[in-house]
Design a protein around this nucleic acid. Structure first.
Length: 488
RNA sequence: GGUCUCGUGGCCGAGAGGCUUAGGCACCGGUCUGCAAAACCGAUUACAGCGGUUCGAAUCCGCUCGAGACCUCCA
């Protein structure tokens, strides 16, 4: 069936099990990820989800799949709080700043795009917007009504969960039972319009002061907050596609309702595999705008958070995140970031040594097995921490070769170099800091180190150390090895 | 209150019945070095608690304690 042989297994949230990945269409993968609502600058927790799905996208590309990666941008506020309150988050900010909703979205989208570049995320194949797909959303709602699974009341349209439950199972993703939901749900107001407490809005009649209003067969209003994903995912990927992803917190109700809408309109679950990325914690609690415990991705890089004492490069953040599995929560702290920074340096340094290694007639280590372990790690539900462990095994090997305690053949070195570069740069999406070449600086450093070497030959340790310490203050580390002095 | 997840050494974090002392960082000893740093070699510290299943459990089951997520906008 597939010409790409893979042993990739993905944890499917639908059944809580790891399943062998078989794409629906030969050699192609369609993936949809719920993107940000742009009423403010995305914080570090938001970024973790996108970075994790970037990793997943990158590995699928690495395996050779033709991947269509769709990640939406939510630029329409939703007015569908069960309490009937106005929760148009975008409109709220727009009113506050006295501008139009789309100005807010545009402003933060520019920042979001910038962050994607800074954190070295590959751009998705397409980033559709909710407001650009109002017509498609209306059409899906009409289909659901035609199928008898939604009803109109007073200019609003609601999904009929009880009717749906006769043909499909509501709650298959989150494991919730409708009758249990009744007891769980907290006190609700403004339920009068709905026939059943669990029904959710597909279309909501406009309030006079809404910032954005659209025309529909049911009058002026706004789309509900799950319908955009159904409209956009199916438009670009078809009724049934391979992977649907998002943050853990979207599992219920957002993804559950997406499944219901898709089944209700098109008769099938939109995705074969559902993937959920876990949260980023701060001091053990989810980073969240509502908890006000968040910091911005740029603040970490600039060192302006209240949490960390010093700035960390985007690469270190990425590296640190890759030390935890995407389904685990991750607690960011100074300690974990410092550890990541050092580890990342060690990895970078070993990689820069690759083209300077001595060649031998035989290899003292099974390089093919080592390289295979990279694939095995990622094949096991994108286990990036395991991949890192294997990369550090490689670092150890490289350092040993460099020190003359291990050997490698030309072919093995070529294989190791190719695959390490590929996994570090292309899959983990890390960029090596030591890559910039500056021939002027090289010249200067040669001169300075020569002077220092003269001093050392004369046993003038004061001068020698003065040079070393001086260089250290501008961030250049001098290392005296057996074969002379090097710097970085 | 309901649903679910998780508790691993000083810290961060993999592993999911024996084939792992995962890995990173820190700490300690050694080699190298004028001294450092780096690198290499080595040592140490562990599976929340209590029971059960098993020849064998961090891994399965039960209970207890603790933490978190979702049930309302959220990545």
């Amino acid at each position: 069936m597939s010409t790409i042989s893979n042993n990739l297994h993905i944890y499917n949230s639908l059944n809580g099990q790891k399943e062998k990945f078989e794409p629906i269409h030969k050699d192609k993968v369609g993936i949809y990820v719920c993107g940000p609502t742009l009423y403010s600058e995305p914080h570090m927790g938001n970024m973790r989800t996108f970075i994790n799905f970037d990793l997943i996208y990158r590995y699928l590309l690495k395996l050779g799949y033709q991947v269509k990666y769709v990640r939406n941008i939510t630029d329409a506020g939703h007015i569908t709080n069960s309490a009937g309150e106005d929760v148009d988050s975008i409109g709220k900010v727009a009113k506050l700043e006295q501008v139009q909703s789309l100005e807010i979205v545009y402003k933060y989208n520019v920042k979001f795009q910038e962050l994607q570049r800074i954190y070295n995320m590959l751009p998705p194949s397409i980033e559709p917007t909710a407001t650009g797909h109002i017509q498609e959303q209306i059409e899906i709602i009409e289909k659901i009504i035609e199928n008898g699974l939604a009803y109109e009341v007073n200019g609003s349209v609601y999904f009929d969960v009880r009717a749906y439950g006769e043909k499909f199972e509501y709650g298959i993703l989150s494991g919730r039972k409708v009758d249990e939901l009744a007891e769980e749900t907290r006190t609700l107001n403004a339920q009068d319009e709905k026939r059943f407490f669990a029904d959710f809005a597909l279309w909501k009649k406009a309030n006079p002061d809404d910032m954005q209003i659209w025309r529909s067969p049911w009058g002026d209003g706004n789309p509900g907050w799950h319908i955009e994903c159904t409209a956009m995912s199916t438009k670009y990927l078809g009724n049934h596609f391979d992977i649907h992803g998002g943050g853990m917190d979207l599992k219920f109700p957002h993804h559950e309702d997406e499944i219901a809408q898709n089944c209700g309109a098109l008769g099938c679950n939109p995705a074969k595999y559902w993937m959920h990325a876990n949260m980023l914690n701060v001091n053990g609690q989810k980073m969240s705008k509502s908890f006000n415990n968040y910091f911005l991705p740029k603040e970490i890089i600039e060192g302006t958070t209240n949490v960390f004492e010093k700035p960390y490069p985007a690469n270190v953040l990425r590296f640190c995140m890759m030390q935890a599995h995407y389904r685990s929560t991750l607690d960011l702290s100074s300690d974990s970031l410092n550890a990541a920074e050092k580890g990342f340096d060690r990895l970078s340094e070993a990689i820069s040594k690759l083209d300077k290694l001595p060649i031998a007639d035989s290899s003292s280590l099974d390089v093919k097995a080592l390289v295979n372990s990279y694939y095995n790690a990622m094949d096991d539900d994108f286990n990036a921490p395991m991949l890192q462990a294997q990369l550090f095994e490689s670092v150890k090997y490289i350092n040993s070769i460099s020190d003359g305690n291990a050997t490698i053949t030309v072919d093995d070195l070529s294989l190791l170099t190719t695959e390490m570069h590929s996994f570090v740069y292309d899959v983990l999406g890390l960029e090596m800091s030591s890559q910039q070449d500056d021939s002027k600086l090289d010249g200067v450093m040669d001169l300075v180190l020569n002077l220092r070497q003269q001093a050392r030959t004369n046993k003038d340790w004061t001068t020698s150390d003065q040079i070393r310490d001086g260089l250290a203050t501008v961030g250049i580390v001098v290392k005296d090895g057996k074969d002379g002095t090097s710097w970085k």
